[in-house]
Design a binder for these strands. Sequence first.
DNA 1: GGCGGGCATTGATCTGGATCAACGCCATCC
DNA 2: GGATGGCGTTGATCCAGATCAATGCCCGCC
Lengths: 245, 245
Amino acid sequence: MLALSTRPVVLDPHATVNACASCDARPHSVCNAIPDSDLARLTAIATVTHAQPGTTFIQEGDPATHFFNISSGTVRMYKLLPDGRRQITGFAGVGHFLGLAVSETYAFSAEAIDTVRFCRFSRARVRTLLDDYPKMEKRLLEVASTELVAAQDQMLLLGRKTARERLASFLMMQARQGVMCQTSRTRFPLPMSRGDIADYLGLTIETVSRTFTKLRAEGFIDIPSASEITIRAPVALEGMASGLS
Amino acid sequence: MLALSTRPVVLDPHATVNACASCDARPHSVCNAIPDSDLARLTAIATVTHAQPGTTFIQEGDPATHFFNISSGTVRMYKLLPDGRRQITGFAGVGHFLGLAVSETYAFSAEAIDTVRFCRFSRARVRTLLDDYPKMEKRLLEVASTELVAAQDQMLLLGRKTARERLASFLMMQARQGVMCQTSRTRFPLPMSRGDIADYLGLTIETVSRTFTKLRAEGFIDIPSASEITIRAPVALEGMASGLS
DNA sequence: GGCGGGCATTGATCTGGATCAACGCCATCC
DNA sequence: GGATGGCGTTGATCCAGATCAATGCCCGCC
């Protein structure tokens, strides 16, 4: 539960001219609102950075000075109660944009699960950039709206679904690799631990483990290793996820 | 749980010229991004409408054709599971803006709790308006970001707080009259039923009722009538809400 | 290869909140 | 004023998932 407090490492403080042009995340990300011809402006305000597993790079309550754009790896966002109870509000992968906030402080913390590479932008500079690219502003609104819909789904899950339905929902969501993509995989890795899954679904580690075991025993899934899942009955699981049965 | 299916009543199909200028909600709402001098454009695309208690005016899954702006009354937004389990994702009051969505369909349903007055805007027309008022787009992004933060708080509540902490959080939030305002009231009405509160907090009616009774017995609150609350120990309740004790 | 530590699994027991079941309190309407 | 029906409250019991407690498994390291 406790994070290493090592600072993220800056790979390239004055990012090379084509850093953004060759970025893996660009096709998936809000950056694609900026035309190739103007990429230099984006590159100029981006700092390419990476974070080791377990590093906290956004701390709830700290002044919200930067935006982040994930180019590889997986991040967990979470909120804590004073006694250590944790709620993971989401996992962020390639192309995901972090740090939207009206308030002057971050509303959540973010930690690297595996090695994470990301671009960091100062909020002040992004604001001036936005004035010149209304299309980017539109993209951000789209992103925020999409996340709002996902958040409402998660409220339904946390407030009203059973442990079994929560796990089924989680697995089918991972199969779609996050929220972005529509194509569904039948075999995929789970970069996060059982503890992370538990804190995301509002359950305990033990309940997550037992429910996985049960779903396997019933033939819905396979668990080749603790961090890998095969979906055997996608339709049944999708039904389970949406509360049928 | 079931809603009346009466349609909302259109009060003024071609809204009077100064409808927006004299609107009670304008100071609290996204509309204030449009200068007084240009209000006619806003008025021209607004339809002033009201809905009787229990009326469903947004239906999850229906084509998302309109935006809504509440000018008085209280609305519940919710999602249902096929067997009728319900999660209320939020209550919307004066100035609240509904209907943000990337998708072509609404992601949630919305019902009037009491008599609700609102403005309705066609999405297509709002889109063209937005092109002329980038400031309005910025306001929408602010609104979406604020709601996202509120949604994350609600996830923490639903995933990790006890019944007692949930009720304390709910009461302190109502005392701040929704999310917008900062000034905290010590006595206020609860327009929603115990069932609504339960479905908002991921509890049952019985647990809500019992917990209210207990908080009163312990001297934290008073319940002059079922739909009215007095906060007696705001500091203690705030602590309880954030998970201390 | 054996040791240590961090996950994950599995079993036994407990409990907060759900469920089931009355009952009370108003309003509204004959 | 008495019947009706929709909340809300209260009590008794139950159970899904939490908690407590081993045990297993894997991987890195000496």
